[in-house]
Simulated assay, not measured.
Amino acid sequence: MDILVADDSAFMRRVITNILAAQKDFRLAAVARNGKEAVSLASEQEFSLILLDVSMPVMDGLEALIKLKEQTSVPVIMLSGDDDRKTIMEALALGAVDFIKKPTSLMKVGKKWTENFCLRLKAVVSAEESNEEQLPLQQDLHNLEDPQPHNKFSAVVIGASTGGPGVLLKLIGQLPERIQLPIFIVQHMPKEFTPSFAARMNQETNADVVEAADEERILPKVYLCPGNYHMTVSNGKIKLDQRPKLHGTRPAVDYLFRSAAAVYGNQLTAVILTGMGKDGALGMKEVKKRGGYTIAQDEKTSVVFGMPRSAIEEDAVDEVLSLEMIGRRLRRIVG
């Protein structure tokens, strides 16, 4: 897979060059030192993936992303520092598929960071290059009638990882002006970015979107789990805790889904969206076991089909729907 790296930091270019050189599946095809160079290179060569720094001279990452999306469908992953939080949220809304927080020093570039970096690159490129074969359960429901689910629902839970922020912004933007029940969201995201992401989602809808707080009383709002915490629900309140990571992540979708299944039973809707790994699959299974309604995003509209696929393979999914259809379903359920 040929990769274009755009970053004005010589340190970061060296780090990425060394990592890619050690991976047989990656090839550093070109390097740009600013957004203008990246846009020019993308117009002249074909790449499998573009890594784009947020803060660069001449043309910054956000302006470059807009121009890149106009001329190519190549997936773009943003490279960000702590000061880029609001810009990253805007980049995800504009079509960046993911973002990776840059290390602050060479000491921070350890085995764990490197493995995560490579996994996320592979997940995005593999999804882009995957064939069009559909799983047996998957259905193309784009043009089918939108039936009303049979249950009277009391809550919605949503889980997402890679590619999730952009998808969630689209779904939240389709909510009715007033929602009648709570929506709980777990998005795999570092703690530094969840406040900005909650605020960005809140801009997309008239419904209230907040970063969840421990012991907060549950109301008809959209609650985003803060980074580095697990979120569950109990006795009409939100519970946050820092028990060990599950599936290598905190927050974990499974903890939310299982607790909500126990509280809401057959009045719960669970949605698993794009993301790598298997988080949420067993939680979806518990929701379905208790009579809840379960939806997985389809492969065509997922950035990475790992989490939806895992839920499908667990026989935990009632329907596999496009992003457009999920938005229509949610609008009817919560309105």
Results as ranks from 00 to 15, higher is better:
129 E>D: 11
66 I>D: 12
58 V>A: 09
33 R>M: 11
54 V>S: 03
78 M>W: 01
108 K>G: 08
65 L>A: 01
98 D>L: 09
25 D>R: 10
89 M>Y: 08
31 V>E: 13
116 N>V: 10
21 A>R: 13
37 E>I: 04
62 L>D: 05
66 I>R: 13
121 L>Q: 01
113 W>P: 01
51 L>C: 11
114 T>Y: 00
76 V>T: 04
115 E>K: 15
93 A>W: 01
105 S>N: 11
84 D>V: 05
92 L>N: 03
96 A>I: 09
122 K>E: 14
77 I>T: 07
78 M>K: 07
24 K>S: 15
63 E>C: 06
40 S>Y: 02
33 R>H: 14
15 V>N: 01
81 G>C: 00
74 V>Y: 01
123 A>W: 01
130 S>T: 09
105 S>H: 04
21 A>H: 10
54 V>Q: 02
133 E>V: 11
86 K>R: 13
49 L>V: 05
103 P>L: 05
90 E>P: 04
16 I>Q: 00
83 D>F: 06
135 L>E: 13
123 A>R: 01
24 K>T: 14
97 V>L: 09
73 S>K: 11
54 V>R: 01
128 E>A: 14
134 Q>N: 12
61 G>N: 00
108 K>S: 15
104 T>E: 12
49 L>G: 00
64 A>S: 15
93 A>L: 10
65 L>R: 00
72 T>N: 06
51 L>E: 03
72 T>D: 03
46 E>V: 13
129 E>G: 06
25 D>V: 10
58 V>E: 13
116 N>T: 14
133 E>T: 13
55 S>T: 11
132 E>S: 14
64 A>K: 02
17 T>D: 09
129 E>Y: 09
115 E>H: 12
38 A>D: 12
123 A>E: 07
33 R>F: 07
107 M>P: 08
43 S>D: 09
119 L>T: 11
135 L>F: 10
14 R>N: 14
24 K>M: 10
96 A>K: 02
59 M>I: 11
89 M>R: 07
16 I>M: 06
81 G>Y: 01
111 K>L: 10
57 P>K: 08
52 L>P: 05
25 D>G: 10
103 P>V: 04
67 K>Q: 12
101 K>N: 06
65 L>W: 01
69 K>W: 05
85 R>W: 03
51 L>V: 08
56 M>I: 08
126 S>A: 15
94 L>N: 14
16 I>E: 01
102 K>Q: 12
65 L>N: 03
93 A>M: 07
103 P>T: 08
103 P>A: 07
108 K>C: 12
94 L>G: 06
116 N>K: 13
102 K>F: 04
38 A>T: 12
20 L>T: 04
132 E>R: 13
122 K>P: 07
40 S>M: 08
111 K>I: 08
34 N>C: 09
83 D>L: 10
39 V>F: 07
133 E>F: 12
76 V>R: 02
117 F>T: 02
125 V>H: 02
124 V>Y: 06
106 L>R: 11
20 L>S: 04
101 K>W: 05
110 G>A: 04
65 L>K: 00
30 A>Q: 10
117 F>I: 05
71 Q>M: 15
69 K>S: 09
87 T>E: 05
67 K>L: 06
134 Q>H: 11
100 I>Y: 05
136 P>I: 12
39 V>Q: 00
16 I>L: 15
80 S>H: 02
64 A>I: 04
105 S>I: 02
